[in-house]
């Protein structure tokens, strides 16, 4: 495989959930969520009941990928912040630790300035958590020779067939 798999452990997952929950309150926003660059949702917090978070995650990643492509065309490494302004709701998108995307959805109860300020602080904390995760994966790989103990080590044809039944 080209890149190491992302493995999320309980401890870091809880830290991440804590950070984005705090960001939601601090930034006075409606929803905060974290997506990896391939479009997989990592965590979400806020009014997400009526929100199609899976589609949101995939489109966000597509958006960031397309913008990255644009950046490279004009000689930039990346555009680290994207902002979409709507009539009522706005979306603030930023890249954290070069590999995950932090999305904040907010309305008139907050402001772009406040969101930017709080996102900056939360990004630093998230950076630390993701460094820990990578260090953990590396350590595990060094000690066992594998990135993780695959839960699929003994997967059978029947397991797969049952998924499609």
């Amino acid at each position: 495989m080209a890149a190491p798999d992302i493995v999320m452990y309980e401890e870091e997952f809880n830290q991440i959930k804590g950070i984005i929950a705090k960001l939601r309150v601090d930034a006075n926003s409606k929803v905060v969520f974290l997506v990896d660059k391939n479009g997989q949702q990592i965590a979400a917090h806020g009014d997400i009941e009526n929100l199609d978070t899976t589609s949101l995650a995939s489109l966000t990643a597509g958006n960031v990928a397309a913008t990255d492509g644009l950046a490279r065309l004009i000689g930039e490494k990346e555009f680290s912040i994207l902002f979409h302004e709507g009539e009522k709701d706005n979306i603030h998108i930023s890249i954290v630790a070069s590999r995950v995307i932090l999305v904040v959805i907010f309305d008139e109860r907050s402001s772009l300035g406040l969101v930017r300020l709080r996102v900056k602080k939360a990004s630093e904390e998230l950076n630390r958590v993701f460094s820990n995760i990578m260090a953990k994966v590396e350590k595990e790989r060094a000690s066992t020779g594998t990135t993780f103990e695959s839960p699929f080590a003994e997967i059978t044809d029947e397991d797969i067939d049952s998924l499609f039944s």
Partner: peptide
């Protein structure tokens, strides 16, 4: 890049 989430016991694959 498969995303395995041990915390929520999910695995996501991209085809």
């Amino acid at each position: 890049m498969t995303f395995i989430n041990y915390a929520s016991r999910e695995i996501n694959c991209k085809i």
